[in-house]
Write a protein that binds this DNA or RNA. Sequence first.
DNA 1: GCCGTTATACCGGATTTCAGGTATTTAACA
DNA 2: TGTTAAATACCTGAAATCCGGTATAACGGC
Lengths: 212, 212
Amino acid sequence: MIKLIIIDDHPLVADGIATMLKDESYLQIVASAKTGRQGLAILSEYPDCEVILLDINLPDTDGLQLCEQIRQLYPNLKIIGLTSVNEAGIISQMIRRGANGYLLKDMEKEELLHAINRVLDGHVYLSKGANEKILQQLRELDINPHQVPMLTRREKEILSLLDQGLSSQEIASRLSLSIHTIDTHRKNMLQKLNVHNTPALLKAAGKLGLLG
Amino acid sequence: MIKLIIIDDHPLVADGIATMLKDESYLQIVASAKTGRQGLAILSEYPDCEVILLDINLPDTDGLQLCEQIRQLYPNLKIIGLTSVNEAGIISQMIRRGANGYLLKDMEKEELLHAINRVLDGHVYLSKGANEKILQQLRELDINPHQVPMLTRREKEILSLLDQGLSSQEIASRLSLSIHTIDTHRKNMLQKLNVHNTPALLKAAGKLGLLG
DNA sequence: GCCGTTATACCGGATTTCAGGTATTTAACA
DNA sequence: TGTTAAATACCTGAAATCCGGTATAACGGC
């Protein structure tokens, strides 16, 4: 008997998944939570749980952070992320943060069962079509799929401030740095993401999941 | 007996709503569709349908456009939008395009029933908390809630090109206009939305639903 | 026919960004 | 301990944006 936990704030989704799985006698949903906090509490109650279905768009916590947190606390737990959007950025971020799989909420019963079995066997399961979607988005940005550009900590920090509408000068003041430094970082990011102005930089970064 | 139609690509959601309504004898779900195309077909089959629950994040069509289209075809039909995100832009756009109501997918049964009754009575029903969320977002942008700035057709066109990462010069070439004209439009938009650079303009416009 | 709005175009000047560099210090790491 | 990556800072010059104007033709509504 394999124990499952669902963390999703939408009762519709939680109920729907329960319905999908009720005929599978080898699977058992032991508990479900509506918030990140609640989810962590439940996890500690069921240490023998093997699979968790984790909604990424949670109300209280950032689902991606929560994913990372759970991975650290329970290294052997299989985490399957649930989202309603199919975007390269979110998918790659989730895998990077320790998820074993990724499902869109419009999945069919068969796909859900298949995903659970795959991750239990140690594979990474990506939602039907997710692979193609990722590659297509990377192509649109003219980026080599084999080396998605990584931004450094400082670059991300500056990117986020740019995203808040600040100018180089304002960021420099905020971080007590020279404006030259900010400009250099911005320039490097433009080059990494292959764009030529700040709006395009922010948009591309968003798509790749380098923001937020 | 009031007839309902559901357009939502997530079987979970469609099933969940059906479950919520199954005890209400005065409501009847006559059909459901998974795509925009399919939805229009079904609507033409049931001209006496009174309420439609419409997912905004559809796979094939833009849900907002579809909403507008349905409103034109069936002026008396009550349209309730369904989304999983609670953002001022999307909400205001939906209402602008003819929706009678707006529900988050994490609603409870009571809220769903209440919303249906309200729109049948001719009211506009906004999801619990949607109002506060809208006002808060407008406050963040320092915009008077009583006069959300409208952009002209031309301004929107230029905004969309800016969003694609084009410079003023590139837009001018694309539209066969003087760069001065583009700059003037951009300047006017900056003023209308109360921001001081293009990234912030794009972000604010996105939040207000003036983009896309 | 008048009036407001939209779209168009231009000016000047200050500021910022963009695109090439170079260079030093710090941190990580094998 | 050497090597690499990251973070810092500066230079120059071209290009673009931002901000204050003004102005005119076109269009629509009342």
